[in-house]
Write a protein that binds this DNA or RNA. Structure first.
Lengths: 145, 145
DNA sequence: GTGGCTGCAAAGCCTTTGCAGACAT
DNA sequence: ATGTCTGCAAAGGCTTTGCAGCCAC
């Protein structure tokens, strides 16, 4: 993402454009591996030592609140961050803990249609995300199928 | 769940049947609110003071590993436990953090069919779960739609 | 009898908080 | 100028670990 875009996004959300925020946004928008806060912190500090972990946490929190990034949780209890706000799903590896994004407009349409047709009693659906568990091909060392 | 059932489940997984495990299984199978570890601990200690939190954590972990219960994570980073192993989905309240189970065999069938038809490249799907975000009706205080 | 399980306490880890000083606007 | 943001350090909260003793088998 270009600096200009980022700065516009920040301003558009009523946030001050600080070097720390710019850097964090740049980093997250360039990492497609769903970094943990810790990963962001160490990347940040590689580039600009002296930025406080607390600042990164606070910034991530702010960005999530402003919906510029999103936060996902895995079963290890560590939060991960995701640059993309487009509706998409996640592929979770059951063996390595890796996560990948999964886009599938056909699937989105299918689900939206389904829930339009069949309301969930007592619940007003706003958004959904599919959690797909399995193995990535490169991990299939054991062929016990 | 009856004690006999639980004891059979434990044995069947190669676990020793201890009073602590019996109690924890009983508690979780009777709590349909997706308790956190802490909730299980305090319930446990109401009934039998002196059981260590560490034991509860270890037991929960063991039970998850043996697939007698399952572990879900929310965006607050606190793990929750779920007695049910049947395939089902979760309704998350975006306002209160409440979680409810959502069963829908039609939906399961729809998704299974979809993924049978359309494989995900580079990924061997084992299991899926839908994360449904929204509001429960009793929470709709603000009608800002 | 023996290996697994429990309890205790301490430590670990990720994350949040409070506050003073700095900075974007 | 001012209200927000940063950095530091400390605390907080959830969870794990190590080890001695105990218990189910």
């Amino acid at each position: 993402m270009k600096s200009q875009e980022i700065s516009k996004l920040l301003k558009g959300s009523g946030l001050k454009v600080t070097p720390q925020r710019m850097l964090i946004m740049e980093i997250i928008s360039g990492m497609y591996n769903h970094p943990t806060a810790e990963m962001v912190i160490s990347r940040v500090q590689e580039i600009q030592p002296g930025i406080s972990p607390a600042t990164v946490y606070k910034t991530l929190d702010t960005l999530v609140r402003k919906k510029l990034i999103c936060k996902i949780s895995t079963d290890d209890g560590i939060m991960r961050y995701d640059p993309v706000t487009l509706q998409h799903h996640h592929l979770y590896s059951t063996t390595s803990g890796k996560i990948k994004d999964f886009y599938d407009e056909e699937l989105n349409r299918l689900l939206r249609e389904y829930f339009n047709r069949k309301k969930i009693p007592g619940f007003e659906l706003e958004d959904f995300r599919l959690e797909l568990n399995g193995k990535f091909d490169e991990e299939s060392t054991s062929n016990y199928v």
